[in-house]
Simulated assay, not measured.
Amino acid sequence: MLDDTDRRLLRLLQSDPTRGVPDLAEAVSSTPAKVSRRLERLRNDGILKGSRAVIDWRALGYSIAVSLRITLDKTVPRAFDDFIAAARDVAEVIEIQTFLGRVDVRLSLIAKDLADYQRLYRDNILTLPHIADIEALMTVATVKSDESLPL
Rank of each mutant, 00 (worst) to 15 (best):
A132P: 05
L151A: 05
V105M: 06
L10E: 10
L42K: 02
R102D: 14
L42D: 13
G61P: 04
I47M: 02
A59H: 04
V93I: 11
S30C: 05
L120P: 07
V76P: 05
A141F: 11
H130C: 00
I70G: 01
L114R: 07
R102K: 12
D56C: 06
A141H: 14
L151R: 01
D133I: 04
D56E: 11
L72D: 07
Y117F: 15
A115I: 04
Y121L: 03
W57C: 07
L107R: 08
E135L: 12
P77W: 06
A65F: 07
E40D: 11
I55V: 15
E26I: 07
L151W: 15
V76D: 03
A25L: 02
D146W: 05
T127H: 06
S30Q: 04
Y62W: 02
L151T: 06
V90F: 00
T142L: 06
F83I: 07
I94H: 13
E95R: 09
N124V: 01
E135F: 03
R43H: 13
Q14N: 03
Q14W: 00
K74M: 09
F99Y: 14
N124Q: 13
R119H: 08
Y121G: 00
V21W: 01
L2E: 15
D116T: 02
S63G: 06
P32V: 01
I134N: 01
L12M: 11
A136P: 03
T98K: 01
R37S: 13
R38M: 01
S145Q: 10
V103S: 12
L60K: 11
P129S: 07
R102A: 13
D123T: 12
K144T: 08
Q118V: 04
Y121N: 10
A86G: 07
P17N: 14
P150L: 04
E95T: 08
L114A: 03
I94D: 12
F80S: 01
P32I: 00
V35D: 00
I134A: 04
D16G: 11
A86I: 06
K74R: 15
P32E: 00
E95N: 14
A86K: 09
I110D: 00
L100F: 14
P22I: 04
I125D: 03
A53M: 13
K49Q: 14
I134L: 15
D113W: 06
P77Q: 00
D56R: 14
D4R: 14
T18V: 01
V21T: 10
A65P: 05
V28I: 04
I110E: 02
D16F: 01
L109K: 02
V76M: 07
V54F: 11
A27D: 11
D113K: 04
P17Y: 09
L126R: 15
V66I: 13
K49E: 15
L48C: 10
L10N: 08
A87D: 10
I55K: 02
E95K: 15
A65R: 14
T71R: 15
P17C: 09
V103N: 12
T31C: 00
I134M: 03
A91C: 07
D133F: 06
D82L: 07
L24G: 02
A87K: 07
I134K: 08
R52M: 14
L120W: 06
R102T: 10
L72F: 03
L12S: 04
R7E: 12
V90P: 08
P129Y: 05
D6L: 12
A79W: 01
Q14F: 08
D6W: 09
P77T: 02
S30M: 06
S108L: 12
